[in-house]
Design a protein around this nucleic acid. Structure first.
Length: 399
DNA sequence: ATGTAC
């Protein structure tokens, strides 16, 4: 299938918004996702839609897109307002992945100000909890969210990596999480009255949105503090923390980012998968790309497809012990299949596309050691039971 | 991605 890439093309449906997809023809982009970009381009007030190389279809709006409009559309940011990826230095001498996997705290259990009053993670809170929202504080969530202990593998730009305070073999903690129930509540309040329509009160929406963005960033710092403390390391400040679901007012317009990281002179961690490397990049995207870069490898398969195909292709053991030798802590088998590395595009191609279009310069790669998704009470090293095997299916699947 | 309904 031929795709028009990296050259602005007018939306054929209506309006004057440009649609540009920053991907080479070597990158697989689902046509549904490009269709969604054109649907967005046809919205009232839309000025330009930039698709990133990790572009894939979302619920109503594309994921991996930066969309500039004179009108503020909450659905273009989605429910996980403030979702982002932060990177924390880890000051540990040496780590044994099996031990680390066992020491992760249960990140589905929220920090409770009363019950967990003595938890040292609270030290990262300076001032009020945004929106006074305590539900789910310090929890990682589901879907593509994770907390990962990783190692700097290949230094591609030594000077830039050094400016980040990093060198080859250093340990980092990568946290991908968002605003949990808070952002969901904010979008729902809008959607109940206005559906996919514009914000009736943009300033009002932005005030709530900004609180969710701050909450998401605080949540990532709390997650890092919980994990670092459990591993016997000092809590640290993030060296990178970019939010990829948000809207910002820029040059008098609304720049919506959905699965697209701010790429105007910032350092961004572009996540690979739970079994491949990630990339720390210096991003330098200009107006054509709506000042944005990709946020990850991008899904290649829907969750339903990944589950169906993954069960035929992978054992639970190989998803828990990945090709790069890392461990995945995930007590939820369905999630393990949905998040299989083979369900994602190749991160190397995503990065190559960004480089080719002058949007980013890679500084270093990180290789996962232990990725935490959700608690595994059975223990990560345990051998798979009969029902873990792909040929032993229970009941009838939905898809 | 989410809390909640099925």
């Amino acid at each position: 299938m031929s795709q028009q890439m990296s050259r602005p093309e007018s939306a054929p449906t209506a309006g004057s918004a440009t649609v540009t997809v920053f991907a080479s023809d070597r990158s697989w982009i689902e046509s549904n996702a490009v269709d969604q970009c054109h649907q967005v381009a046809a919205l009232d007030g839309m000025v330009s839609v930039a698709g990133m190389p990790d572009l894939h279809p979302g619920k109503g709006a594309p994921i991996g897109a930066a969309m500039t409009s004179t009108v503020l559309y909450p659905f273009l940011v989605g429910s996980d307002i403030g979702c982002g990826i932060a990177v924390f230095p880890v000051e540990l001498k040496r780590v044994v992945p099996e031990q680390v996997a066992r020491r992760f705290p249960d990140l589905d259990i929220a920090l409770d100000p009363d019950r967990d009053a003595d938890d040292p993670a609270w030290a990262v809170v300076d001032g009020e909890i945004p929106a006074g929202h305590l539900d789910g504080l310090g929890t990682v969530g589901r879907g593509n969210h994770f907390v990962e202990l990783a190692r700097i593998q290949t230094v591609l730009d030594p000077a830039h990596t050094a400016r980040l305070g990093l060198a080859a073999d250093d340990l980092v903690l990568i946290v991908h999480s968002g605003s949990r129930g808070l952002g969901e509540r904010i979008l729902r309040a809008h959607t109940e009255r206005h559906g996919a329509g514009p914000a009736a009160d943009p300033a009002g929406y932005l005030a709530l949105h900004d609180a969710a963005v701050r909450w998401g960033s605080l949540n990532r710092r709390l997650l890092a503090a919980r994990v670092l403390h459990a591993l016997g390391a000092r809590p640290t400040e993030p060296i990178v923390d970019q939010c990829h679901n948000l809207v910002e007012v820029r040059d008098g317009a609304y720049l919506h980012r959905k699965g697209a990281a701010p790429g105007d002179g910032r350092d961004v961690l572009i996540a690979g998968t739970r079994g491949t490397c990630s990339y720390l990049v210096a991003a330098h995207a200009g107006p054509q790309a709506n000042f944005s870069v990709a946020h990850g490898a991008g899904r290649k398969m829907s969750r339903a497809d990944a589950l169906r195909r993954g069960r035929a292709k992978h054992t639970v053991e190989e998803l828990r012990r990945t090709p790069v030798g890392s461990l995945v802590v995930c007590g939820d088998r369905q999630l393990l299949f949905e998040e299989a590395p083979t369900a994602y595009k190749r991160i190397e191609q995503v990065i190559a596309d960004l480089v080719e279009h002058g949007l980013a310069t890679p500084a270093a790669t990180t290789v996962p050691l232990v990725t935490y998704k959700t608690i595994d009470r059975g223990g990560n090293a345990r051998t798979a039971s009969r029902r873990d095997r792909p040929d032993h299916r229970r009941g009838r699947g939905r898809s």
